[in-house]
Amino acid sequence: MYRLKVVVIGAGIGGLTAAIALSQSGYEVEVYERTQELRPRGAGISLWSNGVKVMNRFGLGEKIAAIGGQMNHMQYLGIHGEVMNQIHLQPLIEEVGQRPYPVARADLQAMLLEAFPGEVNLGYRCISVEEHGDRVTATFENGHQATGDLVIAADGVRSTLREYVLEREVQPTYRDYVNWNGLVEADEAITPPNTWTIYVGNHQRASMMPVGGNRLYFFFDVPLPLGTSAPPELIRSELVEHFKGWAEPVQTLIQRIDPEKTNRLEISDVGPVDRMVRGRVALLGDAAHATCPDLGQGGCQALEDVYMLNHFLVTTNISVEDALKRYEKARKDRTSSIVEKARSRAEMIHGKDPELTAQWYDQLRTESPTAVTSAIAKTILTGPLH
């Protein structure tokens, strides 16, 4: 019996999960990654319930729970530590039917690598694809070629295959703020146990979220022009300057970070794009719809992509092209909406219109906790896993 062969470009969260799902469906899967070493972009990720449900579907639920943090509460605080809002997350969990799990990206990637039955080919930078009849060939910079029935381009925000699918160049767009992120040991001096704490003010944020291994995933956001930079040895002093006068837990966190292991990212997004598929090549995850991280839905949308792509491949027998078109139809509007919603939220949080940001601060102080959880639930439940 003929086994469909899938060539996956990219070994991030989306690419590896796609490889696991499609292997479980009985397909032959080859994975190629351009880097020589798998190093996640960013230290942590908030896997909300829609993303966790995809993991559950492919038998990875217990493993996610083992590496994820227990997040039972959220709290918004002002720059001096004054409480703006406190939110219990159990109503959200009950409404959507699944607990979220913030995880360290390196732990998640290691778990996915272990779950994938095949080998990831490192140091293979895909430079082009070519379709010929019912086959498609990916060509790599080192001269290697991989031919299959379809190619999944899960090669990230700076995808080399996006131009092939869209038939035009689409570059990431800088969204006017810098994000510093990393991991520190959990400590009540920084945030209470099992609590996601977000300090907001001056169009900036300082956030601490529990992940597995008794650690916190932290990030800082500051609106800055494109092109600013700082070597690791200056990152701590840079944060001290930006967050001067903020509450003591923020100062403690800044002193606890390891500058050598702190990422400094200029935040960009991609899209919305007008297509996700061309022939036998499908974009997946950030290659199609990189989002600002302000909704916590970037990784979750890649996982939803995997779920729907696998679904149509195993349930549609007209042709591979037909299955991919159904995948595109099911995902394009959903992912475009998330890109736009995350962008709008990023602009609101980071002071693109200072009056709107001030209104958001006022809203945080008066909004009922159930209104917050209902808004999160709506984003989760609008996707394919209800």
Rank of each mutant, 00 (worst) to 15 (best):
G285M: 03
D269W: 03
A186I: 06
V52L: 05
A110N: 11
A323P: 02
M348F: 05
V170I: 12
T160A: 10
F218V: 06
E304H: 07
Q24A: 15
D269R: 03
T316N: 14
A146G: 07
P210W: 06
I127D: 07
V240A: 13
R365D: 06
G182Y: 03
V170R: 04
L234V: 11
A346Y: 00
I257E: 02
N121T: 12
S368L: 15
A371R: 06
V240W: 04
V6L: 07
L89E: 00
A146V: 05
E304C: 05
G285F: 02
P272W: 05
T366V: 14
D258T: 13
Y217W: 15
A21Y: 03
A375P: 02
D305H: 08
R215A: 11
I79N: 02
N142C: 12
G44M: 11
V7E: 03
G201N: 10
A138W: 00
G78K: 02
N263A: 15
T137H: 03
L364Q: 01
V320I: 15
A287T: 08
L226F: 13
A104G: 08
P193H: 13
A290E: 00
E248W: 05
N50L: 10
E185L: 14
I318T: 15
G285C: 08
G118K: 08
K332F: 09
S49C: 13
V52C: 04
E33I: 06
Y177E: 02
W196I: 08
V240H: 07
G296L: 04
A115N: 10
A375M: 11
R365M: 12
A154I: 04
T291L: 09
R275L: 10
I198L: 12
G245E: 07
Q145H: 11
A110G: 09
L313R: 06
E367Y: 01
A21K: 03
E188H: 12
G143V: 09
T228H: 10
K244R: 14
N202L: 12
A290T: 09
Q75I: 09
H242V: 10
Y217V: 06
A43S: 13
S237L: 11
H73Y: 14
A288H: 01
V372A: 01
P384Y: 09
V320S: 02
A206R: 02
M74L: 15
E33R: 03
W196A: 06
V52H: 00
E355L: 15
E62P: 04
N72A: 15
G69Q: 04
V277T: 05
Y164K: 03
D221R: 01
E163N: 14
A290V: 03
E321Y: 06
V96W: 00
H350D: 05
